[in-house]
Computed example of a mutant assay.
Amino acid sequence: MTLARIARQSAVNSRSGLATATLAVGLVFTLVPLLYLVSVSLMDRAEITSGIVVSADPKWQNWADVLAGSPIPRAILNSFIAAVLGAALTLAFALPGAWAIVRYRTGGRTLAATLMSPWLLPPIVAVIPIMTLLRTLDLANTLAGLTIVYALVNIPVAVWLLEGFIRKLPIEIDEAAQLDGAGSWRVLLSIVTPLVAPALVAVGIIVAILNYHEFLLATFLTQSADSQTLTVVLSLFLGERLAHTGKIAAAAVIGILPLFALATVMQRWLVEGLTSGSVK
Rank of each mutant, 00 (worst) to 15 (best):
S39T: 02
T245L: 14
G273Y: 02
A208V: 00
A177G: 05
P122I: 12
F215T: 00
V153R: 14
A88T: 07
L189N: 04
A113H: 03
Q223F: 05
S41N: 05
D226V: 06
F260C: 15
W269F: 13
E214L: 10
L67V: 14
A202E: 06
R5V: 11
T132G: 08
K168E: 10
I48P: 01
V127A: 06
G97V: 02
I248V: 15
A24Q: 05
I128N: 01
V157P: 11
L85W: 08
L111W: 04
L34M: 09
S224T: 06
L77Q: 11
I101P: 14
L234I: 14
P170S: 14
L120P: 01
G246W: 10
L85M: 09
A202I: 05
I101Y: 04
A4N: 08
S41F: 13
D138H: 10
L89V: 14
A126K: 04
I130P: 07
F80V: 14
V271I: 15
V153S: 04
R167D: 05
R15F: 08
S276W: 10
M266S: 09
F215K: 08
T136E: 08
S224N: 14
P96S: 06
D44R: 11
A249I: 04
V127R: 00
V159I: 07
I248P: 04
L34W: 09
W60V: 08
I254C: 15
V203T: 12
R241E: 14
P194T: 08
I209E: 05
A87I: 04
P258M: 01
V203K: 14
D44V: 04
E272P: 02
D65P: 10
V149R: 03
A56N: 02
Q9D: 03
R103A: 08
A64H: 10
F260K: 07
L270E: 04
L274K: 06
F260R: 00
L230H: 11
A68Y: 04
I248A: 10
T110V: 15
G17P: 00
Q61F: 06
S79R: 06
V265R: 07
Y150S: 13
W99G: 07
S16N: 14
E240M: 05
I48D: 01
I101A: 02
R8H: 10
T132D: 15
A261G: 13
L121Y: 02
I173K: 01
L230I: 11
L37G: 06
L216I: 15
V279A: 11
M1Q: 01
L162G: 11
T275A: 06
A140K: 00
A92T: 14
V153M: 13
G17V: 00
L189V: 03
V102G: 09
V25D: 00
L31F: 13
G86A: 10
Q228R: 12
I130H: 02
L216M: 13
L189Q: 04
L95D: 06
V279Q: 15
S224C: 02
P33M: 12
I171G: 12
